[in-house]
Amino acid sequence: MSLWDRLRQGLARSRSGWVSQLKKAVAGGRGRIDEELLLELEESLLEADVGLDGAEAILDALREAAAKERPSTADEVLSLIRRLMTDQLSEHRRELHQPPEPPGVILLLGVNGSGKTTTAAKLAAQLGGRGKVILGACDTFRAAASDQLAEWGHRIGVDVVRQEPGSDPAAVAFDTVQAARARGMAWAILDTAGRLQTRTNLMKELEKIHRVVERALGRPADERLLVLDATVGQNGLSQARLFHETVPLTGLVVTKMDGTARGGILWAITRELGLPVKWIGVGEGLEDLQPFDPQAFVDALFAGDGSREVP
């Protein structure tokens, strides 16, 4: 058998249902948190993109809590770790920040293809649509980016402020804020071009958009949201860090949660940067945006491997 075949065969083993294994392990007489159990937990966290440091932090917390609470059954161990993980995601306010006076401004940022434009449309629909919201197409770079937003605007019935491809995105942002005010809109939502967080020039452009919005509005944009793809791995932390450094973020939107990715990098992000997750995207339709629910999120993480079938 070739090396590849062997490797593939190994990997093709169906996901082993680690929660059920874990239950067996605890039920099988060990009845406490030993190193082997922690190793199993670590693997499952790694598989959810929590990352090595993130997993260590969570397991340290588990050890500490277990020393006090002394869980004696598998269910108790599991509910303890769930609680710890839920608590960490629940620490910060997740409600939409209400502007002191209209229009409120929402600035969406993120890397390429993470779901900014779709999220802008979803938010526009949820915040009242026609007569309440205006969209600003500040992605003047990607081919047909403003057409994409305009098409959404058309479907929802909201106006989209746009300019020629290649024009200054900060100017579009400025115009959008002005238009929102002139037309008495409650919200202006600014879609921006995707950019990898390491491209300093593009990050400077973002900084300028942020500055110009502040000038037009008399205060910084009310929400500055990083749109993060749930399938992202450890790079998610670098994204959060560098975007946060460029434009101080007010929170995150995690998209593509309808897939099987579990977005585990969120624990590293919230631990280090203390940013709340405000919404999750669960599909490509306008209605597929939900307020973030830490409990459900953690449940999904722990349920992703067939453990639901386990009694």
Partner: peptide, 14 residues
């Protein structure tokens, strides 16, 4: 495939 993809890359590719 996006180079930033995490652990899911395996399931996606498979």
């Amino acid at each position: 495939l996006d180079a930033m993809t995490g652990q899911e890359a395996l399931n996606v590719a498979r």
